[in-house]
């Protein structure tokens, strides 16, 4: 029999995974995903509460949380994109220029795996152009 406590257990596990992930990860997007996972644990809690008490309050609360989480994700991802354009890196350890005077920056012993080189898009190998089009193409390039 699945009781309220099972749902709360799942919620607690999700929240705990999110918290641990947030504290241990270094990739900005993974960190933020972990923070969002914490919110999803809360939503499960509230939905379980709502169905347990037979009220819509929990579901309404859950809807609000999903909405606010979307706003937060929109803002954070826009910020991360801006930061990535500046530094070409998503490592949160790169961002420690603002810190206490005289305190050395924290250096991670294990470097992040190097990101794969930028894939510049290459055009697909063109097939043989139809006769008519080829003529027109040559005309255009000559002009």
């Amino acid at each position: 029999m699945i009781s309220l406590w099972h749902f709360l257990g799942v919620g607690a596990i999700l929240f705990g995974l999110g918290l641990v992930g947030f504290l241990t990860r270094r990739n900005l997007i993974t960190m933020f995903l972990s923070a969002e996972m914490m919110l999803q644990g809360v939503v499960i809690n509230l939905l379980a509460f709502g169905s347990h008490h037979g009220s819509l309050g929990g579901q309404a609360f859950g809807l609000f949380i999903v909405t606010v989480a979307a706003c937060e994700a929109g803002l954070a991802l826009a910020l991360f994109l801006m930061l990535y354009k500046r530094g070409r890196s998503l490592d949160s350890g790169d961002w420690q220029t603002v810190r206490e005077v005289g305190v050395p920056p924290a250096v991670d012993t294990v470097p992040l795996p190097a990101p794969p080189p930028d894939d510049h898009p290459t055009l697909p190998v063109p097939g043989r152009l139809p006769e008519q089009a080829e003529v027109r193409f040559q005309e255009v390039t000559r002009a």
Partner: peptide, 10 residues
């Protein structure tokens, strides 16, 4: 400024 926003948001 970007760093401030990053730390605050996380």
């Amino acid at each position: 400024g970007s760093e401030a926003a990053l730390k605050y948001v996380l």
